[in-house]
Amino acid sequence: MKNVLITGGAGFIGSNLALKLISKGYNITVLDNLSVQIHGENAESTSPLFQSIYNKVKFLRGTVTSKQDWEMAIAGQDVIVHYAAETGTGQSMYEIQKYVDVNVNGTAIMLDLLANTTHQVKKVIIASSRSIYGEGKYINQKGESIYPKHRTAEYMDNGDFEVKSPGSTELRLVATDEDSKIHPSSVYGITKQNQEQMIMTVCPTIGVSPVAFRYQNVYGPGQSLKNPYTGILSIFSTQIKNGNGINIFEDGRETRDFVFIDDVVDATILGIEKEEANNEIFNVGTGVPTDVITVANGLIANYGIHVPVKVSGNYRLGDIRHNYADLTKIEKLLGFSPKVNFTQGLALFAKWVNTQEVQEDKYEKSIEEMKAKGLYK
């Protein structure tokens, strides 16, 4: 089990995983298209993510939508870690065909080859996402588990951003476990659900062990500062470094579970190495919700650059209100628990950003795209 293919392995999580596996003696092949949105122009000479793995892996520049590229990449591999995907929640709501082509069809091509050709792949790790849950898990006043439907403009236009459930006057947010209802609120979430279900369904029938990791919001040094469509810490950092103000959506009290890159890599390696992971689905997070105002203020404090912060009441259709991970299963079966809390991780991330060239702030362009599609209010 020493030959590992990482699709999207020049990306943020993939490159960090590659370097850690190399240090443990694995032979790594990376299949990546070096997306301009993530890596910028002339990625092979300018992308820090690509440069971090250059000459350390067998690199194949290609796409998961190509059967030929998959055939070259799979040859001789023991494990596939499938990261290659389009990842912007908001962007997925109007670039629908691209998200389905890459995320769903790309995965289908891989599975078709595994099912119908000779290979030595023994395990497939799929990067699933907390987005497949949609809104998180709640308890009502009767002690019953509630999985609220997606929020509507009817309430949010009036500044009411919390989730609703018919017949419930009070809901208490709790950690989302792996048995929680799957009801994604974006095309991205739907494609991640499809990826996960295809892999968990097909692989056991062909003698390949599947493992799915439902990552929460991954962050840390190395995260792309060029991509204005995903990664709230990177987006806010680029705005702050450009001296631009931050527009916080809704009331700023929406929360996410931010998990540090090193913890994500460690969890993934446990999935590769432990047989207890086979045929299982795991949450990967910290189990702690952090609101967006805390993120913005924390970054400003770490950079020492004071920019105006506006809590605007704007919102994006498809965004969720709250979701944080229940880690009981991954702790029990794999012995995983996160080592880096948000305060520590934020400081490490900001320290790294301070060493990087300030990128152009393209966030407003991404918002204008959503406005034009009626998805930003």
Rank of each mutant, 00 (worst) to 15 (best):
F12C: 00
F249M: 05
I232S: 14
L334I: 12
A325V: 03
T176A: 10
T65W: 01
A84V: 09
K377W: 11
V57F: 01
G345T: 10
S47E: 09
Q193L: 14
L31M: 13
A372S: 15
G298E: 07
V57A: 00
N302P: 03
S45H: 09
D319A: 13
K241H: 11
I240W: 00
L111N: 01
V211P: 01
A153N: 14
I293L: 15
Y219N: 04
V218N: 04
H306R: 09
G14S: 01
K339L: 13
Q197M: 12
N279A: 04
K123W: 09
T343S: 14
S168Y: 05
G88M: 07
G159W: 02
M370R: 13
K122Y: 09
T355C: 04
K192D: 10
G167I: 10
W70R: 01
N302C: 15
I293W: 05
T191L: 06
A347Q: 13
K24R: 15
L114W: 09
N244F: 10
S23A: 15
G8S: 12
A43V: 09
T238A: 02
E95D: 11
G9E: 12
Y147S: 12
D177M: 03
Q68S: 14
D262E: 15
G287N: 02
S168V: 09
A325E: 04
Q120G: 11
Q216R: 11
P210D: 10
I96T: 13
E178R: 00
G189S: 01
S35M: 00
T63K: 13
E41N: 14
I109Q: 07
N16V: 05
D257F: 04
I132E: 15
C203K: 03
A347W: 00
T29A: 10
M198A: 01
Y147H: 14
V211H: 00
D179F: 07
T118R: 12
D112K: 07
M200T: 14
D177Y: 03
Y26L: 04
Y155W: 12
G220N: 12
G90S: 15
D160W: 13
T117S: 14
F213E: 03
G243L: 00
N297V: 05
S145M: 10
L17Q: 02
I132N: 08
F161V: 04
S52M: 06
D319K: 07
E170W: 13
N105E: 10
G298N: 11
K123A: 06
L270F: 00
N314C: 11
N341S: 00
T191H: 11
H119G: 08
Y54G: 04
D361Q: 03
G245C: 07
S366V: 08
S180C: 10
E276G: 01
E357D: 13
Y215Q: 00
N140Y: 02
P166S: 12
S209D: 15
K149S: 14
L19F: 03
G345L: 08
N314V: 08
S168G: 07
N247V: 11
T118A: 14
L113A: 05
S209M: 08
Y147C: 02
A301Y: 07
G313P: 09
L60T: 07
N217D: 12
A18Y: 09
